[in-house]
Write a protein that binds this DNA or RNA. Structure first.
Length: 788
RNA sequence: GGGCGCGUAGCUCAGUCGGCAGAGCGCGCGGCUUACAUCCGCGUGGUCACAGGUUCGAGUCCUGUCGCGCCCACCA
């Protein structure tokens, strides 16, 4: 035990332990790609920091905010220390509830109380009833006799008693119950300590002295029963306070401890949240914060441990306390010699509470303090909202006269796949290094940040999710390989002639950048990740890259076209790296290093690089969104719809995806627009030979017809299917179209819809109805033609 | 006991201002096509927990109910 080692040797061992685990934490952060300024790493036990802790403790002590007093505190019999009320974990349990009969002194009867801890009767000093409880009015002021011990117990009236619970009479044990202590204060009752900190009955317990709590529980119960004092036993569901660290059942214990008065500190800390100087994201956490803050209680500061900041209080031979950074010559009160320092250490959160300014040198007014206080925002977990966040705000206002941070971003809590809390002691945690090894740091980060959404309260940890994200990382890597492969060295400068697809992807990037940026600015971090995933995979890789390849490999394409494609590929990827870098630092940096040494003049110009690019994507500026290109988006949409419709038809008719088939497209007024995308359509839809007309004299009878907006794609029947199958397909489609049209017509016939819905909505529905009607007409026409 | 969150496809989850319900995985069919089979194409899959209400219109807003989870709490 620590006592075998002694205070000094014990501390040495803890330092070794600390060094080992600090290294491991550093390794984890580095593996995860956290880009800290490692030169500024601080530990709350660093020399300078220790000095700050002493300084502020002394100030608070001298102001009378820190004081010593007798209070009931949560005592952990295993840790042999007091712990603060926010380190208590309440667990629900079923225990027997014993009803005990206490005879009245005057022989006029008895009074029955209920308890789950019969051994605590040894510390009883009174019985309390509710002042409005008629059943007990006549008892108030009388005296009951404590069985087994014979102590006289006053019967008092107190509002704290619930008439409905048990018998409506409560035994009062001031030294071993929080509520009872307060009752004792109100009624000026003795507070005998019946159970000592080492878990044994004291001399107050008379014949039971020396027994452990459990032994006493048994023997007291046995004796009560033998004496006829046990009235009955019930099963009782209740919550039991346990130690958060070791899960030992806590004993409320009257003891002398150091406390800090929080009432004056809380006020300003409430104001800054109410007036918006400190903002919580998600906002609802401010309610949780305020609720705690407005009901704040004194902070139990002392711990009976050997590791931590030892309380800088020195006692003289008369027992006076003097606060000082090192042992003073004499007592400040009476001048007599100092004989000892307080043995206790401070709650670890006391030093943490000073973090925002103690790390920056306060009490010295350093340059760092000027520059970095307040910090830009605090990102943390809801679990330390009270333990740390609230206290940093209070101490910051107290010693810096300013908030430590304007924004507190509260992360969702990660739970296990089964929805249990992740914790070291429950063994439900996950080792970050193993996960990094398994999926890669980028995939792990991306998966965590994009899981659920920022406003959520908790999210599940599902390994499958990180597999998906690993696949995405791989996708990005392969896209980069392709893009780099198509780049050419020392390309002569050419005029940049952008195709529809080029303009389309640049527009999609503009829209994506804009939304990603605005979401990030409001601390919405998962949506931008998902958006980038979608952009990279579905738009950039699946469509644009495929379209670009047509130019590289289709011999009929112009060199100007492939020059433009190369430039656009490079620029889009380059900006994607910058956007994705916060999520995936490793792969984006690696790709960006390759991009840095490539890229034509046109490519760099598209990305906005005038001079040389920075050394690392980490220090590259955030990309500008740029303007969307509505026309290009509309055009490309039509191209993609044509390709998709063709693919669907081939798949439906079982035609191999790669096989070339002939087709004609009748595009009406869209013909000129489609001209520029002819090669893309032909290659991605595998249509060859392909002809595009504005109108045709005679609609083909022996053909499959695909309706894409105003455009019709005709594929000769013999390429895909037979007449019968095509007729059935058209019939099915016509049915669907008519059904949709009918419900839309009904909506438009609804007078109140037309009258009350916004014009734009009504207009849109009308246009849609017209479209559907036209589609139905064309399908009908098709059917007639096929039936001829 | 109080506060908060969640309930949407078989699974895990998105869904912004109330205006045509989405993704990934799974499942089915077809493809090793010149970045990627950790992939590509096509498809399948919904009583948006339940019951009311507001509204021309509700997954979305309001009220209540049920279920799950987290936090807080001195009914012995």
């Amino acid at each position: 035990t620590r006592h075998d080692l002694g205070r000094e040797q014990f501390q040495e061992r803890v330092w070794q332990w600390k060094d080992h685990y600090a290294d491991s934490i550093r390794d984890q952060f580095r593996a995860l790609g956290c880009s800290f300024d490692w030169t500024r790493e601080r530990f709350t036990m660093d020399a300078g920091y220790v000095d700050a802790v002493l300084e502020f403790f002394i100030r608070l002590f001298d102001e009378g905010k820190i004081y010593r007093g007798w209070r009931v505190i949560n005592w952990c019999p295993r840790c042999q220390s007091a712990i603060s009320d926010i380190e208590v974990e309440n667990i629900e349990r079923q225990d027997p509830l014993y009803y005990l009969r206490y005879p009245l002194q005057d022989g006029s009867g008895d009074i029955v109380v209920a308890t789950v801890r019969p051994e605590t009767i040894l510390g009883d000093v009174a019985v309390a009833v509710n002042p409005n409880d008629d059943r007990y009015t006549r008892y108030v002021g009388k005296v009951a006799i404590l069985p087994l011990i014979g102590r006289e117990l006053r019967i008092v009236a107190d509002d704290m008693v619930d008439k409905e619970f048990g018998t409506g009479a409560v035994k009062i044990t001031p030294a071993h119950d929080f509520a009872d202590f307060e009752v004792a204060e109100r009624h000026n009752l003795d507070r005998p300590i019946a159970l000592s900190p080492d878990g044994r009955v004291t001399s107050v317990g008379g014949p039971y002295r020396g027994q452990t709590v459990l032994e006493a529980r048994e023997s007291v119960l046995h004796d009560l029963q033998a004496g006829g004092y046990l009235v009955k036993t019930e099963n009782h569901q209740h919550v039991v306070p346990t130690c958060e660290r070791c899960h030992t059942v806590l004993e409320p214990l009257l003891s002398e401890q150091w406390f800090m008065d929080m009432s004056d500190l809380a006020g300003p800390a409430i104001d800054v949240v109410k007036n918006g100087s400190v903002r919580f994201v998600p906002e609802r956490w401010s309610k949780v914060y305020l609720d705690w803050m407005e009901n704040i209680r004194p902070w139990t500061l002392s711990r009976q441990l050997w590791w931590g900041h030892r309380i800088p209080i020195y006692y003289c031979e008369n027992g006076h306390a003097t606060a000082a950074k090192s042992a003073p010559q004499a007592c400040r009160i009476c001048g007599s010699p100092i004989v000892r320092q307080d043995e206790d250490v401070l709650d670890t959160w006391f030093s943490s509470a000073l973090w925002p300014f103690a790390t920056l040198g306060l009490p010295e007014r350093t340059d760092d303090l000027e520059r970095f206080y307040p910090t830009s925002f605090m990102n943390t977990s809801s679990q330390i909202l009270y333990l740390w966040i609230a206290r940093m705000i209070m101490t910051g206002l107290k010693f810096m006269h300013d908030v430590p941070f304007p924004v507190v971003l509260i992360n969702p809590t990660i739970q296990t796949a089964e929805g249990r809390r992740m914790s070291k002691s429950l063994g439900t945690g996950a080792d970050p290094l193993l996960l990094v090894e398994q999926f890669g740091a980028d995939a792990l980060r991306f998966g965590l940040i994009t899981a659920g959404s920022t406003h959520q309260q908790d999210i599940r940890f599902l390994p499958e999710r990180f597999e998906e994200m690993r696949n995405f990382t791989n996708k990005l890597w392969n896209v980069a390989r392709a893009v780099l492969r198509y780049q050419e060295v020392n390309e002569p400068k050419q005029e940049l002639r952008l195709s529809t697809a080029d303009r389309w992807i640049l527009s999609r990037l503009a829209v994506t950048t804009d939304r990603v940026t605005s979401d990030m600015e409001r601390f919405e971090l998962s949506a931008p990740g998902n958006r980038l995933y979608e952009f990279v995979w579905s738009e950039f890789a699946d469509w644009y890259l495929e379209a670009a390849k047509v130019r590289f490999f289709d011999t009929s394409s112009s060199s100007a076209g492939s020059y433009a494609s190369r430039a656009v590929l490079w620029s889009v990827l380059e900006r994607v790296c910058r956007l994705l870098h916060p999520y995936m630092p490793f792969v984006t940096e690696e790709i960006w290093q390759h991009l840095r040494t490539t890229g034509s003049d046109a490519a760099r110009k598209l990305s906005g690089w005038d001079g040389p690019m920075p050394e690392s994507v980490m220090v590259a500026p955030w990309p500008d969104a740029g303007e969307p290109d509505v026309e290009a988006e509309r055009e490309m949409q039509l191209v993609m719809d044509i390709i998709r419709a063709t693919r669907t038809a081939r798949s439906e008719y079982g035609k191999a995806p790669g096989a070339w088939i002939s087709a004609s497209i009748v595009a009406g007024p869209q013909r000129s627009l489609l001209r520029g995308s002819f090669d893309v359509i032909s290659n991605l839809a595998r249509l060859r030979p392909l002809a595009v007309y504005e109108v045709i004299e005679e609609k083909p009878k022996q053909a499959v017809s695909l309706l894409v907006g105003d455009v019709t794609v005709y594929i000769p029947l013999q390429e895909l299917t037979d007449l019968d199958a095509e007729r059935k397909r058209i019939e099915k489609e016509l049915q669907g179209t008519e059904k949709a049209l009918e419900s839309l017509k009904a909506k438009l016939l609804n007078a109140s819809f037309v009258a009350k819905a916004p014009d734009a909505v009504v207009e849109r529905e009308r246009a849609r109805a017209a479209e559907l009607a036209e589609r139905a007409r064309r399908l009908q026409e098709r059917l007639e033609l096929l039936s001829e």
